Amino acid sequence: MVSAADIFTISSKKEFEKITMKVFRHQYDNNTVYRDFCTLLKRDKQNVKRIYDIPFLPIQFFKSHEVVSTTDSVIETFTSSGTTGAITSRHLVTDLSYYEQSFRMAFSQFYGNIEDYAVLALLPSYLDREGSSLIYMVADLIEGSNNPDSGFYLRNYDELITKLTTLDKEGQNVLLIGVTYALLDLVEKQQFSLSNTIIMETGGMKGKRREMIREELHEILCNGFGVSKIHSEYGMTELLSQAYSLGDGIFECPPWMDILIRDTEDALTYIDYGKTGGVNVIDLANYNSCSFIATQDLGKKYPNQSFEVLGRFDNSDIRGCNLMVL
C-alpha cells in the first residue's frame, strides 16, 4: 500500500520512481479496466521493471469505463465539458482529500501562501454546468484566501473591472484566473495597467472564439492587462494534479506528477528531449483511479524536466484546460 503521506512527501527522483512502481502494482491489482488494458499489451507486474515499461491508459477510457482502483464508494464525479451531444469524461472520485492536498500543495509550491492573494475567478463556462473539477479547486482557493474581495464572476464584467483595478492600485496581490475566451472579452472591454496581479489562463475557447496559438494569445493578453507574462494551469478532468506555467507556456510539475513524451507513431516508444510527441501524464494523486494517462495533447519535454503543450492530435472534441490547437 502507498499512503497519501508517501505521495505528497516525495522529495527526489529516486523516491518518485519507487512510489510510482508501487502505485502501478496497486492499480494493476485493483483496477480491472487498467489491468485488462495492460493484459492486451502483454504487460504485467512481472515484466514491468521501470517507469518506461508502464502502460498508459488512453484518456478516452474515462468516457466509456469506470476507472477506479478501489471498492470505496464514489463521493464525487467530475465531468469534462464538451459540445452538445458529445460523450464526456467521468472521473469517479472516492477520496477528495487527495485532490485537495494535491492542488493546495501545488499552489503553495508555485505561488506561496494563498492568504497573500485576492482570488478573482472568471470561469463562466465552468460555472454554467455541474461537475467541474476546476470550479471545485478554485472555490477552495477562494475560501482559503480568507479575503472578502475574492470570488467568482460570471458575466458581470463591469463589476470585475472595478474590483480588479481597485485592488491592484491598492497594492493587493491578485490572482485573476480565467477561461481564455472570457479573458479576451475582458481586455476588449477595458485596457489595464496592472502591477500586482497574476493573470492565469486555463485554456479553452469553448466554441466562443477561433482557436489561436499560445504566442498570439499571450501577446494579446499581456498587452490588454499591461503585464509581462501570462501564467497558465495545465490540468484536466481525468487528473487530480496540475502543472503550472509562470510564463512563456513552459510548465513545471509538482513532485508527485511527471510528463513523458511518447512517439506519435508508436505509443509504447518514448522520444528524446525537445522533440514533439504525445503527452503521457503520471499523476500519483490519482491513486484511487489511474495514475498513468495517455492524453490527446502534443508537447515537448526539456532536460530540466519542464514541458510545453503544443496542441492536440486532432481538432475534434476540443475541450478541457490548455488544449489550444495549432
Rank of each mutant, 00 (worst) to 15 (best):
I10F: 02
I59Y: 06
F16E: 03
R312D: 15
H65Q: 14
S195P: 01
L160N: 02
S80E: 12
D248C: 03
A86C: 04
Y153E: 05
R262H: 14
A139T: 10
A285G: 13
A118N: 01
L221N: 02
D29W: 00
F61T: 11
N113P: 14
H65K: 15
T180N: 10
T295L: 13
Y117S: 08
F251D: 13
V48D: 01
R50T: 15
F16G: 07
M212A: 15
S306M: 01
T162S: 09
Y126K: 06
N31I: 04
L127H: 07
F225C: 08
V325G: 14
L260M: 01
I51E: 15
K275Q: 12
A294P: 09
G277A: 12
Q172S: 06
N322T: 02
N280C: 11
V325H: 11
L310K: 15
S289C: 14
V174E: 10
S11E: 15
V281C: 12
I271D: 04
V325W: 11
S73D: 09
I318W: 05
T165G: 05
F37M: 04
L183T: 03
G85S: 10
K301F: 09
L298A: 04
I261V: 11
L260S: 05
S291C: 10
F192C: 13
L134H: 02
D6H: 08
I213D: 01
F37S: 01
L240M: 07
L134A: 10
L120Q: 06
S228W: 11
Y28Q: 04
T237H: 05
G277N: 14
D72Q: 09
G203R: 07
E188P: 03
M205G: 13
I161D: 12
G277D: 13
S150E: 09
D53V: 07
F152N: 07
T71K: 06
S232I: 12
R262I: 08
R155W: 03
E201T: 11
Q296R: 13
F192T: 09
L57N: 05
N147C: 10
F110D: 14
Y52P: 08
V48I: 14
F292H: 07
D314K: 05
I220V: 15
Y136V: 08
F103C: 07
G247S: 09
G144I: 00
S150Q: 06
D263M: 08
T269C: 11
T20W: 09
T79Q: 02
Y287H: 00
E216A: 03
D158L: 02
L154K: 04
C290L: 05
L240C: 00
L310R: 02
T94I: 05
A86T: 10
T180G: 00
E66Q: 14
V174L: 12
L284R: 04
N113E: 14
L164F: 06
F103S: 04
L239A: 11
E15L: 08
S145E: 12
S289D: 07
S73G: 00
G203F: 15
